[in-house]
C-alpha cells in the first residue's frame, strides 16, 4: 500500500469511528450528485428532527416557521463550482445560496465546503473559514458535506502546523478542526449527535 493509501485508510477509519460518513468521489460532478441525492433523500421534514417537532417555547417555535424550501449553501467556493451546484439544485427543486446565512439561522439543509487538509491520526478536517458565510455554513447546516482531496490528507496535527501558522499569521483568521458531527454526552453520559452544530458530517474524499 502506498503512503497516500495508508493515510486515506487511516483517515477513513478514524472519521467513521466518530460517525462521519466517508465516501470516495472521482470528480466534483460526482460530489454534486452526492449532495443533490442527499438533499433529496433528506426528508422534507428532516429539519424538524433538530427540534421543531418538540414542544418548544413559543419564541423558539417561531424560528421553525421561517423555513420553507430545502436549502443548500455553498459559500466561499470557486465560481464555477457554485454555478454548477446551483444549477443542479434548481433542477432538483432546492434553493442554493452562497451568502445571507444570517437569514437562515433556524437552519439550512446542507452546507457544502472544501477542507484545506485532513488529519489521518484523528479523522479530522481542517477548514479555514475567516469568511463568516463559510463559517456559518459549517455551523447551521443540518448536514455538513465536506470535500477533501485525498492528496491533502496528512499524518497528524504536527504535519499541518506550518500551514496553520501561515494562515494564522495572515490575520484575521478563523480556523476549525472538525471531527465528526456536533456531539454531547452531558445527560447521563449518553452520546447524542447534533447539539448546536450539524447532525451529520459527510466527507467526500476526492481522487486527485
Amino acid at each position: 500500500m502506498s503512503a497516500t493509501q495508508e493515510l486515506v485508510q487511516k483517515f477513513t477509519e478514524k472519521a467513521e469511528l466518530v460517525s462521519a460518513f466517508v465516501t470516495t468521489v472521482s470528480s466534483e460532478d460526482e460530489a454534486f450528485k452526492y449532495v443533490i441525492d442527499l438533499c433529496d433523500k433528506k426528508d422534507a421534514c428532516q429539519l424538524l428532527m433538530s427540534g421543531c417537532e418538540r414542544d418548544l417555547s413559543d419564541k423558539a417555535e417561531a424560528l421553525c416557521d421561517t423555513k420553507q424550501q430545502k436549502i443548500i449553501a455553498a459559500p466561499g467556493q470557486k465560481k464555477g463550482f457554485y454555478k454548477e451546484l446551483a444549477t443542479l439544485s434548481k433542477k432538483a427543486g432546492f434553493e442554493c445560496i452562497d451568502s445571507g446565512m444570517r437569514d437562515h439561522l433556524a437552519g439550512i439543509d446542507i452546507g457544502v465546503t472544501y477542507a484545506e487538509y485532513g488529519i489521518a491520526e484523528t479523522g479530522t478536517l481542517m477548514i479555514d473559514c475567516p469568511s463568516e458565510e463559510l463559517r456559518l455554513a459549517t455551523m447551521i447546516s443540518e448536514y455538513h458535506v465536506c470535500i477533501l482531496p485525498k492528496s491533502k490528507i496528512k499524518k497528524d496535527s504536527y504535519a499541518v502546523e506550518k500551514m496553520m501558522l501561515t494562515r494564522m499569521k495572515k490575520t484575521p483568521n478563523y480556523m476549525a478542526y472538525v471531527t465528526g458531527a456536533s456531539r454531547t454526552a452531558d445527560i447521563e453520559r449518553v452520546l447524542a449527535l447534533g447539539v448546536h452544530g450539524p447532525l451529520e458530517l459527510h466527507i467526500l474524499l476526492l481522487e486527485d
Binding site: K14, T124, E132, P172, M175, Y177, S182, G197
Partner: peptide, 21 residues
C-alpha cells in the same frame, strides 16, 4: 478527559474576524 481522540471541534481564532452584525 473523555477518552476521545479529539473533540468534534477545535476552533482557532486569531484576530478580529469578519462579523456581519
Amino acid at each position: 478527559a473523555t477518552g476521545q481522540q479529539i473533540t468534534s471541534y477545535v476552533t482557532w481564532i486569531t484576530g478580529a474576524n469578519e462579523c456581519a452584525s
